[in-house]
């Protein structure tokens, strides 16, 4: 349809009385407004990215300042430069939140505060003579930051508080479980891998829980991190010959196919991509474990290559038919 045809069509609609001057002008005004809004949205997201990059660079600057001048600075300066900065940034965010046009800048200040806070608490604990390398200390720091971020999120439902609640919550889980174990020789079960399994499952289910909410933006990231954690742990639990774990080695293909199936149900590309990749890893692993001496390495590589092609095609087909 070219422009002349469109104009002729509009003229005929006007002559038939099916289109008024007001309707025509309203349509014109609306199209201008939505394209302006698109430009504004794009400018806003670029600004957000720059705010967060700027925040990250501020954090980097503070860390480098502390790191390179550690021996020259006195204790008070160290605490002010780290913990003091974090607290100051947090309060700056609170003050700026009063102004509607400073909403996104607040997020940047809260972001810097959350990044610098662990450094500030560790520096303060170190100066107080507490050993900061232990799991107990890490648990305490993570717990403090988790509580602060959760309380902040409950008061002001910002995405930055949500992100750091998940991050500090995960850190607390790993730290606290290490603290409870206390160096015990858990040789009968792969405790580290089971924790990753639990963390991966938690992140995936959390992503699913957020899908019907206004935080659905985080779903794909939680799915991605969760499925990587879960599948990595499950693959590692299988072990390697001669110390393999038959249960996990035999169930892993079922797990990956389950993940690929779930990608259809959840409409998640992350599940499809990582399910496929880990299935390929598994095929590589099994070939390397059991088929290099019997069939010969060259022959098993041929079979492996064709299998990988099949898996790749399956992923492409599922994506095209059910997800895209």
């Amino acid at each position: 349809m070219n422009k002349e045809n469109i104009i002729n069509r509009v003229i005929s609609l006007i002559r038939e009385g099916n289109l008024t001057k007001e309707e025509l002008l309203e349509a014109y005004d609306n199209s201008i407004a939505s394209s302006k809004q698109d430009v504004l949205n794009k400018q806003s997201s670029i600004s957000n990215i720059l705010y967060y990059i700027g925040g990250g660079i501020v954090f980097l600057g503070i860390s480098i300042f502390i790191g390179t001048n550690w021996s020259e600075l006195n204790n008070f300066t160290k605490i002010i430069a780290t913990l003091g900065t974090s607290v100051m940034m947090y309060f700056a965010g609170i003050l700026l939140a009063q102004y509607k046009n400073m909403e996104k800048v607040c997020d940047a200040f809260y972001f810097i505060s959350a990044l610098v806070a662990p450094l500030g608490i560790f520096v303060t604990m170190d100066i107080a003579g507490i050993d900061t390398g232990t799991a107990g200390c890490h648990s305490a720091v993570a717990a403090i930051l988790l509580i602060v971020n959760v309380m902040s999120y409950l008061i002001d439902k910002r995405n930055v508080f949500f992100i750091f609640s998940v991050v500090f919550g995960s850190w607390f889980f790993f730290g606290f479980t290490t603290f409870i174990v206390g160096g015990r020789p858990f040789s009968d079960w792969d405790y580290v891998k089971y924790r990753w399994l639990a963390a991966g499952l938690t992140h995936m289910i959390m992503g699913y829980a957020l899908k019907p909410t206004d935080k659905k933006f985080f779903t794909r990231y939680l799915y991605s991190f969760g499925v990587i954690e879960f599948l990595t742990a499950a693959l590692c639990l299988g072990g390697y010959s001669p110390n393999q774990n038959f249960f996990w080695e035999l169930t892993f293909p079922g797990i990956t196919f389950g993940v690929i199936f779930l990608s259809v149900y959840l409409k998640s590309r992350a599940f499809l991509i990582f399910g496929t990749i880990y299935l390929m890893f598994y095929i590589f692993k099994i070939t390397g474990e059991y088929f290099t001496s019997g069939f010969g390495w060259a022959f098993s590589l041929i079979i492996l290559g064709f299998t990988l092609m099949g898996v790749g095609y399956l992923a492409f087909y599922v994506n095209k038919k059910y997800i895209s």
Partner: peptide
């Protein structure tokens, strides 16, 4: 009903800690 997945997600690490203890 909407909160059930979130409750399940948060229960997993708590359950792991309890099982460890």
């Amino acid at each position: 009903k909407r909160n059930v997945p979130l409750i399940v997600a948060l229960s997993i690490p708590v359950l792991m800690i309890v099982l460890t203890v």
